[in-house]
Write a protein that binds this DNA or RNA. Structure first.
Lengths: 201, 201
DNA sequence: CTTGCATTTTACCGATCGGTCAACTAGTAT
DNA sequence: ATACTAGTTGACCGATCGGTAAAATGCAAG
C-alpha cells in the first residue's frame, strides 16, 4: 500500500509541474513516466487514462490552494475586504516566485486548462467549472460579510463575486502574455472597484 | 498568382475554425490539408512551419475584429463610454451566434492561444501580446476621451484600459468554462465600474 | 519550342502519441 | 507450501505528429 501510494504520488509529482508549465496536449504519458522513473504499464495501473491523471492533478492543485494561502487569505479574522487584498498579494508573490525559479510566468492551471480543453471534453470542463464555482463562493461569502459590516455599499454579491473571479483570471492571462508578474501587482488591486449592482426588482 | 492565393487562403480557411474551436496542439497539419483539399507538400510551399500558419491565422482574426464590430464599437461618433457598452454587446452576440452554430462557446482565440503556448514559444507570445497591446490602446483612447468629456472622473487611463481588457478576457474565460455566453451578458456591463486611480505622485 | 519558375503530388522520415497486453516479481494471507 | 493479488516490466499496437525531398505538373515568357 505504501509503495503503491508512493508510485502514484511520484506520477502526480512528475505530472503537476509539466501540465502547469506547458499544456495538456503537449505533455505525454511517456515523458511523465520518465519523470517518475517508472514504465508506462505501471502508469496505467494507477490511472485508466490521461484524462484521469489530469483530473487528479487538478484536485491536487485545488487542495494545495484551498489549504494554502487561499485559506490564509480568507481568514475570518481579517476584515472582509482585506482578505481580497491578501489574495491578490498571494497570487502576485506566488507567480513571482514561480518566475524566479522557472524563468516564466505559468499562470493559473485552472484557467490554462479551461481554455485549452473545455471545448473538447465536457467532463474536464465540468471539473474545472466546479473549481471556479467554489472559488466564486469564497468571494461572495466575503462580499456578503463586507456588506453586512458596512464596509461597502450593498451590491449583488453573487455576480460581483463572479466578476472578481473573472477579473483575477483575466489579469493572470495578461500577465502571462507579458511573462511579467508585475502586471498582477499593477492591476490586481483594482479588483475591489468591481461592482454589480442589485437588481432594482 | 490567383491560384496560389486561393490555395493559401483555403489553408487559412480550414485552419481558422479548427484552431479557434480546439487548440494549437490538437490540430494537425494533415487535418488542415484534408480540410483544404490539398497535400501536405503543398502546405509547406506556403507556410514554412505550423507556427507560421498560426501566426497568419492570428493576423486574420485580428483583421476581422479590427475591421468588423470593433471598428463599429469604437466609432468616434458614439459617446466614449457607449463604445464600451457596444463592444461588450458585440462580444456577447458573437459568442452567442457561435454557440448556436457550433454548439459550443469558443471564446477568444487570442486568449486561448496565449494560455496554451506563451510559455513554450516566445515568438507566438510576442505576437499575441501585440494584439492585446493594440486592444488596450483602443480602450485607453476611449477612456481619455470620456475623461475629457467629463463623463467619468479622471483616472489612470492606461492602467484602467488594461484592467478592462483583462476583465473582458476573464469573463470570456468563465463563460467558456460554463459553455454559456449569457455569462458575458450578466457580467460584461460591470466592466465600466473598473477604475485604477491616478497615482497621487 | 524551350527554358524557367511556381505549384502540386507522392512517398517518405524518425519520433511520438495514448493505450494494451502478457509475463514477471514480490509480498501476504491461508 | 501455495494460491492470490497488487505492482511492475518491457515489448508492442495502429495512428498521428511536424517536416522533408524529389519528381511531376502547369503556365508563362523568351
Amino acid at each position: 500500500m505504501n509503495i503503491a501510494t508512493d508510485t502514484r504520488s511520484r506520477i502526480l509529482a512528475a505530472a503537476k509541474p509539466r501540465f502547469h508549465s506547458r499544456s495538456y496536449a503537449n505533455v505525454g504519458i511517456q515523458e511523465i513516466c520518465e519523470g517518475a522513473g517508472i514504465q508506462k504499464g505501471s502508469f496505467y495501473h494507477f490511472f485508466p487514462s490521461k484524462r484521469d491523471l489530469v483530473m487528479a492533478v487538478i484536485d491536487e492543485f485545488a487542495d494545495e490552494w484551498a489549504n494554502g494561502f487561499v485559506a490564509e487569505a480568507f481568514d475570518p479574522a481579517l476584515p472582509p475586504m482585506e482578505r481580497i487584498d491578501y489574495l491578490i498579494d498571494a497570487a502576485y508573490f506566488w507567480q513571482k516566485s514561480i518566475k524566479q525559479v522557472h524563468g516564466r510566468m505559468l499562470g493559473c492551471i485552472f484557467g490554462n486548462l479551461t481554455l485549452e480543453v473545455s471545448t473538447q471534453d465536457d467532463i474536464l470542463r465540468a471539473k474545472l467549472l466546479a473549481i471556479f464555482t467554489r472559488a466564486k463562493s469564497r468571494f461572495s461569502e466575503t462580499l456578503g460579510q463586507a456588506v453586512a459590516a458596512g464596509t461597502i455599499a450593498p451590491l449583488d454579491t453573487e455576480l460581483t463575486a463572479e466578476a472578481m473571479l473573472a477579473y483575477l483570471e483575466g489579469v493572470i492571462l495578461l500577465a502571462k502574455a507579458q511573462n511579467d508578474p508585475e502586471v498582477l501587482y499593477r492591476l490586481g488591486p483594482a479588483i475591489k472597484t468591481l461592482r454589480v449592482e442589485l437588481k432594482t426588482a
